[in-house]
Design a protein around this nucleic acid. Structure first.
Lengths: 337, 337
DNA sequence: GAGCGCTCTTACAACGTTGTAAAAACGAAG
DNA sequence: CTTCGTTTTTACAACGTTGTAAGAGCGCTC
């Protein structure tokens, strides 16, 4: 804002050519005499010209940004302290930057905020949306779709709709946890599930429960958690009351697993000696935990990158039919089980 | 992108008035007949009109977005897993959303990336920049300033320059840690500092060292860490070798403090029984740690919000002289010391 | 009843870019 | 020496908005 920014016009005047020629030099260099090209480049250098992205966007209908929308329930902005979202952001940013696209961060935690997101995209402020939604009842995906906004979801939508998404085989992850605990010779296996209104939680739990049944354990004591450390603490306490002789816990994410380990140790129980604990995600807390957590790895960064890739592909050639990319979980054996 | 988005023109046609009138109804409603207003509103409703933000930006020279630039050294995108940046993001988003401004996330971890950031802002893609810089030698603040881009820093700039920033009294924080440990009767007090090329680290350490000297401890065994858990682990090991009879550790952030606690416990030392540990920041790991960390609170969210506020104020009325807002640390006593 | 001031509305020119159709330059062919 | 392609270059119209100057309508006063 110091001095008025130099414009195409200015460069053209200095170079002694027309605006259009300069434009062609700046963009694809088609049909421009090498000599003139040189002159124009010098003029650009001399004036310190930078193309005005807004003006360009107005005519190209592309902004070079996408919205990264965190559709947290109603938690507010403290979602950013959850390691999960940090990893999503890292994956998205990592991919987008190689394509010179920038993410604008949005929170859709209220109906008002959701409307704002839809407006933002309909206004053409971003070319598309990356939705990290947790609740299957979230109306945002449908509303964006309806508004004709290109969007990709981080998880399978709650109700079937023609939209691309990346996801993980959460059932397989649940199975892996069950198989591992059973193979380790545990008999009184319990679980702290995620919130049951989240598809990923349902799937992890279903996979776990089914595998347990197949191993001959038709009933698994279960307490529902909320993916937070506090909820993990509370759940572990309940589990210990209802099931004092438990010898294993599968927690639906690492944050709750870590909290469970703490509670167990406060009760004088050794992990994994007395109780084996398996987490889910393989995020930072899994490594920070003492003992380090055996966990089911969710390749969040890769999934996030893949989500960004799907969106950019859709922007590149619109109207393709929706795609889905499903990632496989992986058992990471550490000390806790 | 479904059907061509309705434009001012369309609304004007439906309402039977001119574009400008519609524009005035949409924006500040000055000098428009209530009847006409009603008609126009209906037409807007009917056509499903949304003002095109890009076109608006072109004439108003304002985009309604700001860049949130993470000037990590060269770490890449894994900064997002650091709880500190999550908190910064939370604070920024929380403030901006109340003003209908959206942050676009950028990483400036290489010279190439820095140039991209400067270009991005010079192109007018964002109205200003929020810089979360750690290294005082970072050339980005100076380059942005030179380009005339409104910017606010999260920390005092490395070399004096006319720019607004928020910061904390890190020295006072260091003093608090020293005072607390000495008051607790500790005699062999050691410290794991942050990276010494970071001003905040220097200040925390200086404050700590000075206070220790004032308490009659002229020399404090110090190992330099890198603000990561791994570096904390390594530092604690070295400290234990060089100083086997230590009875207190002040770590320059919680991540390293937590790692130090782990190492101590692995060596059979009780915290705080044998060794007292004080962290810094009061972020998630401080609470997750067993025992929970006594720490120096840095009000990151409030600081980040304040940074955003300074930037918006500067955008509102440009050319004000730079301001600084310094926050006070706070001792949070928990179980570890 | 003409002139005047007031309020409200309308045309029109920006903003900086891209894309397209028309014009100019330049060889080569008739 | 004109005529016809071919290659470059130029002028001009978008893109959708805002702001401003000019214009229309209308009730007053003198």
């Amino acid at each position: 804002m110091s001095k008025a920014a130099p414009t195409l016009e200015d460069v053209a005047r200095v170079a002694g050519v027309s605006r259009a020629t300069v434009s062609r030099v700046v963009n694809g260099t088609r049909n421009v005499d090498p000599d003139i090209q040189e002159t124009v480049r010098n003029a650009i250098e001399q004036t310190g010209y930078t193309p005005n992205r807004v003006a360009r966007s107005l005519v190209t209908r592309r902004t070079g940004t996408v919205a990264l929308v965190i559709c947290g329930a109603g938690g507010g902005s403290d979602v950013f302290t959850d390691p999960f979202f940090g990893r999503v952001t890292a994956g998205v940013v990592d991919f987008l930057r190689t394509h010179s696209v920038h993410p604008v961060l949005m929170l859709a935690d209220s109906d008002h905020a959701r409307t704002e997101v839809v407006e933002f995209l309909r206004q053409g402020s971003a070319d598309g949306a990356l939705l990290v939604s947790t609740h299957p009842a979230d109306p945002l995906p449908a509303r964006l779709l309806e508004a004709g906004v290109p969007a990709v979801l981080y998880a399978r939508p709650g109700s079937p709709m023609p939209v691309s998404y990346v996801d993980m085989d959460h059932r397989a992850g649940g199975r892996m946890a069950a198989d591992h605990l059973v193979a380790a010779g545990r008999y009184n296996i319990t679980t702290i599930s995620g919130p049951m209104d989240v598809l990923a939680s349902q799937d992890r739990h279903a996979g776990f429960r089914d595998a347990m049944a197949r191993h001959g354990f038709p009933f698994v004591p279960t307490v529902e958690g909320g993916f937070t450390a506090e909820s993990g603490t509370a759940a572990m306490h309940r589990l210990l009351t209802e099931c004092p002789d438990l010898d294993a816990v599968f927690a639906a994410n690492d944050l709750m697993a870590q909290a469970a380990v703490d509670v167990l140790q406060e009760h004088g129980l050794r992990v994994p000696g007395d109780v084996a604990v398996v987490g889910f995600d393989d995020s930072a807390p899994a490594l920070a935990c003492r003992p380090p957590l055996t966990t089911i790895r969710q390749p969040v960064e890769r999934m996030a990158a893949s989500m960004a890739e799907l969106l950019l592909a859709d922007l590149e050639k619109p109207g393709q039919r929706p795609k889905s990319v499903i990632f496989e979980p992986e058992l990471v054996v550490r000390a806790s089980a």
